[in-house]
């Protein structure tokens, strides 16, 4: 079963995205903020990261750069999720594999996830 790490502070979005992915047979690990994410079990290497940008204690883009700089996880695909329209243009600090602009629908989310995991 493919594993996905989901970093999103909004409980409603996090839980519903988690259900959507679980109903597609992904195993999802949710984190609510950067500190929570940094405390994770480091043995957990996922097949995909989904990161929100605006987090209460930092930026998902920094988390993205952090992942890219860790040789262990550097190759794992990353999806960045944000309400900002111009996100793709300025995420130079982090080379993400895909962007999802809020609000998004189930199909566009699953399409991107399936593409990157398989």
């Amino acid at each position: 079963m493919a594993r996905i790490i989901l970093l999103e502070d909004d409980t409603d979005i996090r839980e519903v995205v988690q259900w959507i992915l679980e109903s597609e047979n992904y195993e999802v690990f949710g984190f609510v903020n950067v500190a929570d994410f940094m405390d994770r079990d480091l043995n957990l290497v996922p097949d995909l990261y989904i990161l929100d940008v605006m987090l209460p204690d930092g930026s998902g883009l920094d988390v993205c750069s952090h992942i890219r700089n860790e040789s262990r996880d550097a190759q794992v695909p990353i999806i960045i999720m944000s309400a900002h329209a111009s996100l793709e243009q300025v995420s130079s600090g982090c080379v993400a594999d895909a962007f999802i602009q809020k609000p998004f629908d189930v199909d566009s989310l699953l399409k991107k996830v399936n593409e990157l995991v398989n």
């Binding site: 909004d10 409603d12 979005i13 519903v16 995205v17 259900w19 959507i20 309400a83 900002h84 809020k102 609000p103 998004f104 629908d105 189930v106 989310l109």
Partner: peptide
């Protein structure tokens, strides 16, 4: 910007 967060969860939830 503020309204996009609840709008996202609302849309996804209704689809579910």
């Amino acid at each position: 910007h503020d309204i996009k967060t609840p709008l996202t969860s609302l849309g996804l939830t209704i689809e579910m």
